[in-house]
Write a protein that binds this DNA or RNA. Sequence first.
RNA 1: GGCCCGUUCGUCUAGGGGUUAGGACGCCAGGUUUUCAUCCUGGUAGCAGGGGUUCAAAUCCCCUACGGGCUACCA
Length: 511
Amino acid sequence: MSASSDVRVRFAPSPTGPLHMGGVRTALYNYLFARRHGGKFLLRIEDTDQKRFVPGAEDYILEALNWCGLKVDEGVGASGDLGPYRQSERTAIYAQHIGSLMESGWAYKAFDAAEEMEALRKSAEAEGRVWQYDASTRMGMRNSLTLSPQEVASLEAEGVPAVIRFRMPEEPRDVVIDDLVRGKVQISTRVLDDKVLMKADGLPTYHFANVVDDHLMAISHVIRGEEWLPSAPLHALLYEAFGWTAPRFAHLPLILKPTGNGKLSKRDGDQGGFPVFPLEWKDPATGHASSGYRESGYLPEAFTNMLLLLGWNPGNEQEVFRLADAVEAFDLDRVVKSGARFNPDKAKWFNEQHLRSLPLDAVAAQLHATQPTGLNWDLQACHDVADMMLERVSFLSEVWEARWLFERPKSLDAKLVRKRWKADTDELIDGLMEQLDALESFDSASIETAFKAYLEDRGVGFGSVLLPFRILLTGEGGGPSMFAFAAFIGKEETRQRVTAGKSLVQSMQSE
RNA sequence: GGCCCGUUCGUCUAGGGGUUAGGACGCCAGGUUUUCAUCCUGGUAGCAGGGGUUCAAAUCCCCUACGGGCUACCA
């Protein structure tokens, strides 16, 4: 391998919609590999298919990478000397390079109509054969190999649409890809077809633009999804045709659907109850919104951590990684070969791990920034709530679902009331409130002391008073320390909740 | 159909000739806790099948099955 300072990798998405989590993982592995080896992480936008271009997609990609903390060193969204980094702005470069391939005989112009080829394919299929545009068929087609230069010129003058195809070697040979995750992969050129390099609209196909750009941008390692493995030999041949040294390849395993068959697709998300996108996406054409990990309350480091372990492991038992830790640990040699089924449960677990390792101040700040409109808690209040709730939630957003934190309960858990309300419960609560009322400092520790003294005095157990107290304050049977919570809402609110709660109990009992 | 890649608990994975096949998620049980949760302890469950090679195979080879990808003037 070359010196590590020469490492240059790229993430090269198409702006055809929101990036999905598989794409984010590819970006993550590229980023990590670059950082690990002191190299550069580039972002190139592959927008050569004008039919599938979606406005806003490029901004989405940038924002998603940014949210994940994957800082781009060079390319779109950064700067660099080897641009432009958007393929739609590189057409002159492709024109020049396709010219040199035509001259050297590695490429030729073809005029065949799509329908003709389709018909050929169909009839071959009917006979159980496969038809493809290759060394065995191209001499029967309409192209610059079979037509005279005059015929070609007149076709061009007539404006007959033409593409430029790669000319696979007539003499079959094996192409070997030495893949960094899969080892040697061998394919015979016999089964490869003459792929279109330049489309009739004058724009390059993926294969051509990708190879030209990777070379011109001095990419050292191509790290991409396994769906590209079958075309890697074509790419290798293209490098050869240009007389260029090919980068190293690493084809990543695919992320599969949690249930059912196939790779995870953009449509799998919302019906499966989990996001497939890092950020929420509103389709500009249909207005349909797809949920995102960010909006679902995931911490970016939890999201990338989950992705990191989907197809890679450190070789020891560590599972929780911050991005900076991952940079130290990551390398391509521990990337797994087989596809990984995505598991939403584990994603949630990663979020819990990262959430609980966050400093309380940071959580408080988060809560402060995301609190419902009209609440207006100060930082201290957010801090108190963070302290009470952090270990009880998987996502920070769940804090706001516990409405009793900031609203008097409108109803109480009926089953609990039925089970827990004894003949003397109301009277015990009244006695407790008398003690609490007398408290000068209404803080958690004082409340606890008074509470315990009261129990002692009355000779009753914790459960007979604390649970009813909890139900009156929150309406529920579980939650944080009621001493801390009572202190949090204050003496007056505690008194009011108890009073209101008791009348709720009464009306429930009289039903 | 053709070509390529893959296959260890339900899921993510470790393990690459000799292991009681390890960990994590999930699930179950117990402990801690005023409750819930956290946390701790334990349990559950796996080498796709068949042939070889070998004293010895989850591990190497072959076949089959299954899964996945590609097979566009999409990436």
